[in-house]
Structure formats: C-alpha cells, structure tokens
C-alpha cells in the first residue's frame, strides 16, 4: 500500500485496524474508517468503472461527492460514491460496467 505514513507537520499515521474487502472478485486490505476510493488507490487501483455507454475508464475526480465520477456498486447497491462511502469489513464492491445500448450497435455491448 502506498500510504503517507510520516508527515512532517501532520505527524505519523497511528496504527489503525486493518479490514478486508473485495473489489471485482479480488481481496484487498483497507484501514477502518477510510473511504472506498482511498482504500482502492492505496492498493494501486485507479480505475473504478467504465462509462456506461462508451466503456471509457473512469476514476474519482473531485473526491468529495460532487462529480459522481467514482460511482461503484456496493453490496448490490449501484451508483454509490466511492469517495464518500466508508469501506467496511467484508464489503463486496464492483466496478461500474458498460451497459448494452438498445439504440446503437443493434443492442450489443461492445465488450
């Protein structure tokens, strides 16, 4: 994990409880109380979803809940903001997927 453990002004990160969660079927570790977006970035994961129509990759942009770019599926609830949602032990998180478009490409998704 790429954490900022020591900070010259803010001090050293205290030991926090480690929990585990799943993202797209893989297990990762996080610290208790942090956001899903922070936990994933600390595990080297920037891509949180693909655009529903174009399939282009997306990550968090504003990190404080305004832009909705970081939406993921959490325990079967879709469109949850990864930047505002606290990661919990055994949480099952899935990235947003491309959806079939009935009006274009004959309804076939181009995966």
């Amino acid at each position: 994990m790429t954490r900022i453990i020591d900070h010259p002004v803010l001090g050293r990160l205290e030991n926090r409880n480690v929990i585990s969660f799943q993202f797209d079927g893989n297990s990762y570790q996080a610290y208790d109380g942090e956001s899903i977006a922070a936990a994933l970035l600390a595990n080297g994961i920037r891509k949180l979803r693909v655009h529903e129509e174009s399939g282009s990759p997306r990550g968090f942009y504003c990190n404080i809940g305004h832009c909705m770019e970081c939406r993921v599926t959490v325990n079967d609830h879709s469109n949850v903001r990864a930047c505002l949602t606290v990661v919990e032990n055994d949480m099952i998180i899935q990235s947003g997927k491309q959806l079939p478009n009935l009006l274009k490409k004959g309804g076939q998704s181009n995966e």
């Binding site: 922070a38 504003c62 990190n63």
Partner: peptide, 19 residues
Amino acid sequence: PGVMSIGAAQVMTNVHRVQ
C-alpha cells in the same frame, strides 16, 4: 483515471493520507 481536481489531491493527501 489519475486525473483529479486539485482539491481531490488535497483531500487524498492530507485527510486520507494516500499517495
């Protein structure tokens, strides 16, 4: 992914303490 607002970088760095 990897493009973010400057404020997002501030929060990730000082609040969440993730590079």
